[in-house]
Each structure stands twice: as structure tokens, then as C-alpha cells.
Write a protein that binds this DNA or RNA. Sequence first.
DNA 1: GAAACTTAATCGTCATACTTTTGCTGCCCG
DNA 2: CGGGCAGCAAAAGTATGACGATTAAGTTTC
Lengths: 231, 231
Amino acid sequence: MEIQGLPGRLLADLGPAIASGEIPVGTVLRAEELEARYAVSRTVVREAVRILESMRMVESRRRVGSTVLPRSDWDVFDPLVIRWRLAGADRGAQLRSLGSLRVAVEPAAAALAARAASDDDRRELSALAVELTVTARAADLRTFLRHDIAFHSAVLRASGNEMFAHLGDTVGAVLTGRTEHDLMPHQPADYAVRLHREVADAICAGDAESAERAMRTIVLGALEELDATLD
Amino acid sequence: MEIQGLPGRLLADLGPAIASGEIPVGTVLRAEELEARYAVSRTVVREAVRILESMRMVESRRRVGSTVLPRSDWDVFDPLVIRWRLAGADRGAQLRSLGSLRVAVEPAAAALAARAASDDDRRELSALAVELTVTARAADLRTFLRHDIAFHSAVLRASGNEMFAHLGDTVGAVLTGRTEHDLMPHQPADYAVRLHREVADAICAGDAESAERAMRTIVLGALEELDATLD
DNA sequence: GAAACTTAATCGTCATACTTTTGCTGCCCG
DNA sequence: CGGGCAGCAAAAGTATGACGATTAAGTTTC
């Protein structure tokens, strides 16, 4: 997942700084300056900046430097960008955007999964739903989070659509983010757990409509909770 | 949009080659070899490979080289990856994935837009709907395509959700792709045009439900047409 | 036959020199 | 006094040689 090496360290510093606004939009970064600041060679700086450029967070021009682009240009689907934004100042905006995306995508994925899931997928979903129920009762928030992520990822994967499947990590980031930043009830709500179970059962039974409805209830609930907490 | 310079040229060659399978998954690319093949320096090769790495299309390891990762690892939301795939062998799979994504996202975006669109947005949507009607009648496929893209992008943007907004380019790529590769009726269907108009009107009127329904009909129709054509 | 050691291949990083582009300054002419 | 044009210089872009670090694979030894 992580980009490694020295360029990775540069990125891990610059990315969050830009995402949080600590380095504001419009700032011009000069290569030489970065070399000095991080005590690395030109090669390393260039590679890091190139990656930021491929995320459309900066734009390099000769004789000028690398300019931080407006947020609207950033590749908001890039996993790294999402993580950086979640860690910084516009965590709220990022969580809201992701919340809406989930409302759109996850119910659709659940419906597809009810039709397309393999037997293995169905078995896995059942198992995860059970795990979820157990850990919720034990109020073990960390493992509950892990299973919650696993569950949603599994549904997305079982949909058979590669783009949905890839949102698994993204959803994971959201769930982790809101747990880590105390935007979640400390005890998973009973009805939410029941709904997860309902999704799993519906998918196993091939009942697309129920799966979609239950999943929509889950993500809508999450979005409402989020909106309530953020105000 | 494009990444520029020599690394850009390398990328424009390697990316499509990998996406099309011409360079199969598992292939190991050595830096020296690439230097020779493209007659560029290590600096350039390294930057290009780094970008491929950030898209998770390859993974570099010391003493080994850069291995082409399985397709399931690729960052399928990266605009470049999408373009490359659309141009190559798995155009079909890519179009199907994107089709499902559209079905999930665009109706939701239309509903949001009906609530959140600014006056400017509404005016623009109306205008675009009119343009669409006119160019459809004239059967001018290229300008029709342009307006179609503009319309869908405008709806996504008007939703007020940055992630939806960013899918505008992606949807544009889909529409362009299917037009360029003759996966579309040569005359835009009348009812489709009428539906676009309906979406615009509903959004202007603040009628979220109608907007969502009309948009869903549009994208579901597109998906069905696609499925029919691909078989 | 397995474990430890050696080797060599290749990436990763650095330092430096050269090339190319381009914003800016200031001159010249209208 | 103002506008265009030329030359300058600053910064990114590219090339290259050297060295370090890592690790797969082969080799030796017990």
C-alpha cells in the first residue's frame, strides 16, 4: 500500500501537509528548497513531486517550480489522497463525500452480489456476519471495526464488479477514520448489527431487493449519524 | 491531463502495453533494458516506473526489477488506467464496470443535484438539455457526444459532492469510448434525449425523485444497450 | 541434505554537469 | 509615455558515473 524508500518519506510529509492546508493552495515548491529541507538528492525530490503531480495535487513548470493546485483538481479517488485528507483539516468534507458515495454504491453492490456471488463469497459473508454479531456484543471496538470493514469489503468484492471491489479499501479508510476520531457510538447499535446480518442472509438467498434495501438502511444510517456528529 | 516530458512518453507507451496485455502480468521490467529500448536516461525511466508503481500496476524490488502486478491490484479509478484499458483488450470489461458504476452513482447525483444545485447550475443544465435536443435532431454525432458529456458532467458537478464531480471525466471517457468504437446507435434515440430533458427539468424544479428516476432510466438503458452490443 | 556463507545482479541514492524552457527586465522604437 | 522585442537568468528537465543496499541464487562446508 505504502510507497517506500526516501521518496515515500517525502510524500508522507508533503502529502498530509498539502492536504491539511498547512502548505496552502498556490504555494510554489522549488526542488532545491526541498532537497535542502529534507536532505535528500534531486532524484528523490523529483520522484516524489512526480507522484504528487500524477495525483494532480501539484503542477510543475519550468522556471517556476511545483505549484500546489486547487483542491478541486486533486484526484480524490486516490487512496493516498483520501487518507491524507481524512487525517487533516477537511476530514469532515471528506467523510461526507465518502458517505454519499457509499449510499450510492453499496446498495447497488449488495444487489449485484445477491445475483453474482460465488458459493465461497456467500459462505464468507455469513461467517463475517456471525463474527460481527459476536464482537458487537463483546463491545470490542477494534476487532468489531476490523470485521465491519471485512464485511463491507466482502460485499463489494462479491458484486463481481472490479470498480466496486476497489472501493473496499476506501470504505475501510472511512470506517477506520470515523472510529479513530470518535465519530462513532462506542457501542455498535444493535439494529445496525441486525441489518448486516440481513444483508448477508439476503445475498445468500439470492434476494437482491432485500439485500439492497438492508444495505441502503445501513449506509443511510451511517450518513445521518455522521451528519449529526459533525454539527 | 497528460503527464508530460520524456517520462510521459515512456508512460504513454508502457501503460497501454501493460493494460492491453501485450506486456503480460508477471513480466519483469529491468531499468537498464528500458533505458536502452527508449534511449533515455535512468532518471526518466525511474520516474515513469514510479508513477506506474503509484498506480499499483507494477512493483519494484531490488535485485529483481519491476514486476507487472495482477490486474486486480491496479488502481482502476485512475483516469489514465481507465483510458488505457478502454483503448485495449479489456475494453469490454472496463465498459461494463463503468456502466454499473454509472447506474449506482448518476441517479444519486441527480437526486442530490435537485436539492443542492445553484441557480447557475440549473441554468446550465437547461441550456445543455436544449443543445442536446438540437444536435440530436441534426444527427451530428461528434457534437452530440460533446454535449452529452457536458450534460452528465454538469449533473455530477451540480450534486455538490466532490467525488461525484470527479467522475465527470470518467463518464466522459466512457461515452467517448463507446462512440469511438461503434458501440452506440448512430442516431441518438429520441426517448433518450427526452429523458435528458426530463432530468434537467426535474433538477430545475427541485424534484429529486423524478430526477433520480429519469437518470436511472438513462443509465440503465445505456448499460443494457452495452450488454447487447458486447455479446 | 541442510545450513551458513559468498557472490553478483539490480535497484536505490547521490553528486554533478549540461540542456531547455520561460518569466522577467530593460532597452529601443514608435 | 507606452508597447513590443531581445537577451538574460532562474529553475525544471535530462544525462551520467559512482557508490551503497538488498537479496536471489549459487557454493561451500559440516
